[in-house]
Computed example of a mutant assay.
Amino acid sequence: MDVSSPQNGSIVGFFRGRGFDDKNIHDMFKKCKRLQGAENERASENWDYLKSIGIEERKLPSVVLKCPRILTLGLNEKLVPMVQCLTTLAKKPSEVALVITKFPHILSHSVEEKLCPLLAFFEVLGVPETQLGKLLFLNPRLISYSIELKLTQIVDFLASLGLNKEGMIGKVLLKNPFIMGYSVDKRLRPTSEFLKSIGLTELDLQRMAVNYPEVLCRDVEKILRPNCTFIKTCGFGDRQVATLVAGYPPILIKSIRNSLEPRIRFLVEVMGRNINEVVDYPDFFRHGLKKRLELRQRLLRRKNVGCSLTEMLECNQKKFSDKFDLNNKLI
């Protein structure tokens, strides 16, 4: 688009006056055809309104670059109703400005045609009314998904895992609302099939979906399989791998180099334990290496005390100190 065109002169002047360069202006015209012949007065009015609801002026150019269409929308017809509705969902007024900054396209959707049906859809799935705002503010892109063509497919997939009791799917969505953005055929189903292939039961998958839905969202070939292969190379058999994954699913998505490998090395070389001990306590991989494992190992060695991994790790610092008579001396 020729930014020097007389037809676009007024709105181009508006942009230049707010610090946009010609490249940005050109990109916005290319992204939003409605800017052609857009009214300077409306753009100024919308810009000022966005400032008035708490969006910092230094962040406004970024917001408009993401969604230039918001400067062409009717203030009272589109922007104000959506902001008012979002305000009723927010815990704090500042959340509205934050969610718009994060995903300005939310303002281009209709309250009646998109937002209200979406909220009703999630309520039916068991998301409490008081938590609807949390769900939307965590992943505002939800408003851009089709209920019929996209969201219903995800719900059907989760139900196929056995999450058909009242409220269970709602719990999954609150735990990880980003799961709704993935493809069932390209990501979620292949992941669930891989997890079944390594020995996880339907009940294991249900527990994973409710407590660690992020594992279901990861790519099999790039993340899950390499982690599974690494675990096996450490000496764990197939059944033990299934037990580890079922007991602590994030073991499949943690960094091999920065998380799994250092912990296995510490377990064997420093703690002098057999790797099979973690099969009885998969949560071993959840604990911080320096803040929990190294510290407690050092204290136990100082007292010359032996114990299981569960006894060592499954309690807070005070209970740990009391149990082994450490008198709360943690260094």
Results as ranks from 00 to 15, higher is better:
residue 1 M to V: 10
residue 2 D to Q: 09
residue 2 D to N: 15
residue 3 V to M: 11
residue 3 V to C: 12
residue 4 S to E: 13
residue 6 P to H: 11
residue 9 G to V: 02
residue 9 G to S: 01
residue 10 S to N: 11
residue 19 G to Q: 11
residue 23 K to D: 12
residue 25 I to V: 00
residue 26 H to G: 07
residue 27 D to L: 12
residue 31 K to P: 03
residue 33 K to Y: 03
residue 33 K to A: 15
residue 40 N to W: 14
residue 40 N to G: 08
residue 40 N to M: 15
residue 42 R to M: 14
residue 47 W to R: 04
residue 64 V to S: 09
residue 67 C to Q: 09
residue 68 P to Y: 06
residue 72 T to C: 15
residue 73 L to F: 00
residue 74 G to Q: 08
residue 75 L to I: 05
residue 78 K to D: 15
residue 79 L to G: 01
residue 82 M to A: 08
residue 84 Q to Y: 09
residue 85 C to V: 06
residue 89 L to G: 05
residue 89 L to K: 04
residue 90 A to P: 10
residue 94 S to W: 14
residue 95 E to T: 00
residue 99 V to N: 04
residue 104 P to Y: 00
residue 105 H to M: 13
residue 105 H to I: 11
residue 106 I to P: 13
residue 106 I to R: 08
residue 111 V to E: 02
residue 111 V to R: 06
residue 116 C to Q: 15
residue 117 P to T: 07
residue 118 L to Y: 00
residue 124 V to P: 06
residue 124 V to S: 11
residue 127 V to M: 01
residue 130 T to D: 13
residue 131 Q to N: 10
residue 132 L to F: 14
residue 134 K to S: 08
residue 138 L to E: 12
residue 138 L to A: 07
residue 139 N to H: 01
residue 140 P to G: 04
residue 141 R to I: 04
residue 143 I to W: 07
residue 143 I to C: 05
residue 145 Y to Q: 10
residue 151 L to Q: 05
residue 151 L to G: 07
residue 154 I to P: 02
residue 155 V to A: 03
residue 156 D to I: 12
residue 158 L to Y: 13
residue 165 K to E: 13
residue 166 E to R: 14
residue 166 E to W: 01
residue 167 G to F: 06
residue 169 I to G: 03
residue 173 L to Q: 00
residue 174 L to H: 08
residue 174 L to N: 06
residue 178 F to G: 00
residue 181 G to E: 06
residue 182 Y to F: 15
residue 185 D to H: 09
residue 185 D to P: 04
residue 185 D to W: 08
residue 187 R to V: 15
residue 187 R to L: 10
residue 189 R to I: 03
residue 191 T to D: 02
residue 194 F to M: 02
residue 197 S to V: 00
residue 201 T to R: 10
residue 205 L to W: 02
residue 208 M to P: 10
residue 208 M to W: 01
residue 208 M to Q: 02
residue 212 Y to W: 07
residue 212 Y to Q: 08
residue 216 L to W: 06
residue 217 C to A: 14
residue 219 D to T: 07
residue 224 L to R: 09
residue 225 R to L: 13
residue 229 T to M: 11
residue 230 F to V: 03
residue 232 K to C: 03
residue 232 K to D: 01
residue 233 T to N: 11
residue 236 F to N: 07
residue 238 D to Y: 10
residue 242 A to S: 07
residue 243 T to A: 15
residue 247 G to V: 05
residue 248 Y to W: 12
residue 249 P to T: 02
residue 253 I to V: 14
residue 253 I to T: 14
residue 257 R to E: 15
residue 260 L to W: 13
residue 260 L to K: 03
residue 267 L to V: 05
residue 272 G to R: 09
residue 275 I to W: 13
residue 277 E to Q: 10
residue 277 E to A: 06
residue 278 V to L: 08
residue 279 V to Y: 09
residue 279 V to N: 09
residue 281 Y to I: 01
residue 283 D to S: 08
residue 284 F to Y: 15
residue 288 G to Y: 06
residue 295 L to N: 12
residue 296 R to K: 10
residue 299 L to F: 12
residue 301 R to D: 04
residue 301 R to H: 07
residue 301 R to Q: 13
residue 303 K to D: 00
residue 305 V to K: 06
residue 307 C to L: 05
residue 309 L to N: 08
residue 309 L to E: 07
residue 312 M to S: 09
residue 314 E to G: 01
residue 315 C to T: 12
residue 315 C to M: 13
residue 315 C to H: 12
residue 316 N to C: 04
residue 316 N to V: 06
residue 319 K to S: 14
residue 323 K to Y: 02
residue 324 F to D: 04
residue 329 K to C: 12
